[in-house]
Amino acid sequence: MSPFPTLARAQKTIAAFSGWSQPEPETGYVWFDAPLDIEGVTEAGFVLHGGAYSNRPEVHVTFEMRISKTPGRRCVPLSRIDWRSLTGGHTNPRWPPPSEWNGRTVSSTHFHDFEINWVPEQGRFRRRQLAREIEEDLQRFEQLRAYTGKHFRINNIEIVDVPPWEYNLFSRGP
């Protein structure tokens, strides 16, 4: 039986948050991988991944629950939340049905929710992932973080710092 539903639905705790990375020289991307505990046990390779651009404050933040089999190698994303994505909205595949999200394009803030992508009777993910709209108006990083904690079932997500954003006169952007 696949462990993914158990991991996705369990109450979790961030075992340690060691801070955001230094910005990538090429892109300014910053990220972290924080190991997740379930009932006091740190699950192998199970992390909360966060990503943002240091030079793009208050846009394009990603939180993803993922299982990294081996560091730097193939991994399996379970759920992801994109906030004000610079790549725009997410376009959902029309096929296969059924989902109310089939064929719809959702806004640049959206949720790749485990529950709409997992096919329980076949024990696998949909091959082409769906994303749904987020019902709440998330205006600030702190609101996004709280929303992520609630929906990923991570009870101490407030230990994740605000990304190391560099502000200048124009950096807020459109």
Binding site: H90, Q129, P174
Partner: peptide, 21 residues
């Protein structure tokens, strides 16, 4: 979209994850 020093263009090509190129 135009920022201070950069412009970002979303195009009608879709990455495997469903994001726009």
């Amino acid at each position: 979209r135009h920022w201070d020093e950069a412009s970002l263009i979303n195009l009608p090509l879709i990455f495997p994850s469903g994001s726009f190129v």
